Lab assay of single mutants.
Amino acid sequence: ELELEEVDLYRMNSQDKLGLTVCYRTDDEDDIGIYISEIDPNSIAAKDGRIREGDRIIQINGIEVQNREEAVALLTSEENKNFSLLIARP
C-alpha cells in the first residue's frame, strides 16, 4: 500500500533549481516508475523538506509521468514557476 502525498514547490525565477535528480529503479524490470535519486541540499525541494530520496513521482502538474525524459522536461521547464508533484512512498 503506497502513501500518496502532493507537494507544491514554488520558485521565484526560472534560475532557481528544484534540485531533484530522477532515475529508474533498475532492479525490477516491471517497475517503470520514476524515482528521486538525489536532492540537492541547497535547493527548493531540500528547503521544503517533504520530498525524500526514494520517493516515486506519479504526476507533475497533473501530468502522469511515463518516463525519465518526460519528468526531466517537466521539472526543468522554464515556463513553470509552480510545481505540483504527486509522490508515492511505501
Rank of each mutant, 00 (worst) to 15 (best):
E78M: 07
I87R: 06
E5L: 14
N42Q: 07
T26M: 15
S84A: 06
A71P: 03
E5D: 11
Y10H: 06
N61D: 14
D48L: 02
S84F: 06
D8K: 01
I34F: 08
K47P: 02
I57M: 09
A46F: 09
G33C: 15
T26H: 11
R89L: 01
Y10F: 15
L20E: 00
D30G: 11
L85W: 00
N82L: 09
I57Y: 00
D40A: 11
S43G: 04
G49C: 07
K81D: 06
A45Q: 01
A73G: 09
L74Y: 15
I60S: 00
I32G: 15
D55T: 03
E70Y: 03
G19Y: 00
L75I: 10
G19R: 00
D28R: 13
Q59T: 12
G49F: 02
I39W: 00
R56C: 04
I36E: 00
F83T: 11
K81F: 11
I57S: 00
N67H: 05
E5R: 07
R50Y: 02
Y24V: 15
G19D: 01
G62M: 03
P41R: 11
M12N: 06
I87T: 05
D16N: 11
E64K: 08
E3C: 11
K47I: 10
R89D: 01
D31A: 15
N67T: 13
G49A: 10
I87S: 02
P90C: 04
R52S: 09
R11L: 15
R56T: 11
V22L: 12
I58A: 09
D48F: 02
D27H: 07
I34P: 07
V7E: 00
D40E: 12
P41H: 12
L4N: 03
V7K: 00
E38R: 11
L20F: 06
Q66D: 15
N82K: 10
L9V: 04
E53R: 05
P41A: 10
D28I: 08
L85N: 00
R11Q: 05
I87H: 01
A71I: 03
D48C: 14
Y24W: 07
D27E: 15
E3A: 12
S43N: 04
L20M: 14
S43C: 05
E1T: 02
I39E: 00
D48G: 05
L20H: 00
K81V: 07
D31Q: 08
A45G: 06
N80I: 08
P41G: 08
C23R: 13
Y35M: 07
L75M: 08
R52L: 12
I44T: 07
E69N: 04
N61E: 03
N42D: 15
L74C: 04
A71F: 05
E1A: 03
I60P: 00
V7Q: 00
E3S: 09
Q15N: 10
G33T: 14
L9F: 09
E70W: 03
I58D: 07
Y35T: 12
R89N: 03
R68P: 06
L20W: 02
D40L: 15
E69W: 05
N82P: 04
E64V: 05
V72T: 11
G54N: 12
E29Q: 10
L75D: 01
E38C: 09
V22R: 01
L20Q: 00
D31M: 10
G19W: 00
M12C: 02
V65Y: 05
A73P: 05
I36H: 00
A46G: 10
R89Y: 03
A71Q: 03
Q15S: 10
D31R: 13
S77K: 10
S37M: 10
I44P: 07
A71E: 03
D31E: 14
D31C: 10
N80V: 05
G62E: 08
S84N: 11
D16V: 14
L74F: 10
L75S: 02
I87C: 13
G62R: 08
F83C: 04
V65W: 05
I51P: 07
F83S: 04
I39R: 02
I58K: 15
D48I: 03
I58W: 04
V65N: 05
G49S: 10
A71K: 01
I51K: 00
S84L: 13
L4G: 05
L18C: 02
D27V: 10
F83Q: 03
C23H: 15
G54M: 05
Q66K: 14
E29T: 13
L9R: 00
R50F: 02
E3H: 11
Q59F: 03
R50W: 01
D30L: 08
S43T: 04
E53S: 09
I34M: 12
Y35I: 12
M12Q: 10
K17M: 10
L86P: 00
A73V: 06
N42F: 07
N82G: 04
E29S: 12
D40S: 11
G49W: 02
C23Y: 08
K47N: 11
Y24K: 03
E1P: 03
